[in-house]
């Protein structure tokens, strides 16, 4: 997870601070003017803009990521569902072609 944090939020020596804020439910994140805001996504596609390194690390630690394509679990499942449906539609055609091909081969050999 630490490597994800550094990859998404950038390098920082504030990592030990993360454990402290995890045990403090009332912690309020202060925006860091030197930090370039980053948009993070969760698995259902919700977005959040983080304004400091520690805020970013906290969210990444909670499973948020910045790569939107990776978040699309639902899209992935949908894709596999649609792929199966596509195969169902294509199988009769493939069989038809195969049949035709075999028939031609038979005709040639006979």
């Amino acid at each position: 997870m630490d490597s994800d944090i550094f990859k998404i939020c950038g390098e920082s020596d504030l990592l030990p601070e993360l454990e402290k804020i995890q045990s403090d439910p009332n912690f309020v994140f202060e925006p860091d003017p030197n930090f370039n805001p980053i948009t993070l996504f969760n698995e259902i596609g919700d977005t959040i803009m983080v304004n400091s390194w520690i805020e970013c690390a906290n969210y990444v630690n909670g499973g948020w990521v910045n790569n939107i394509v990776e978040t699309g679990n639902y899209e992935r499942n949908l894709f596999f569902g649609l792929s199966i449906l596509t195969c169902v539609l294509l199988i009769p055609e493939i069989l038809k072609y195969l049949n035709r091909f075999l028939n031609r081969k038979k005709e040639k050999t006979s």
Binding site: G45, V69, E70, G72, E75, F79, T86
Partner: peptide
């Protein structure tokens, strides 16, 4: 929210085409 025109691992776009 998650739209991307990238063709790599973009299951949303693949799903649309399928």
């Amino acid at each position: 929210k998650i739209y991307s025109s990238s063709l790599k691992d973009n299951f949303q776009l693949y799903s649309l085409l399928l």
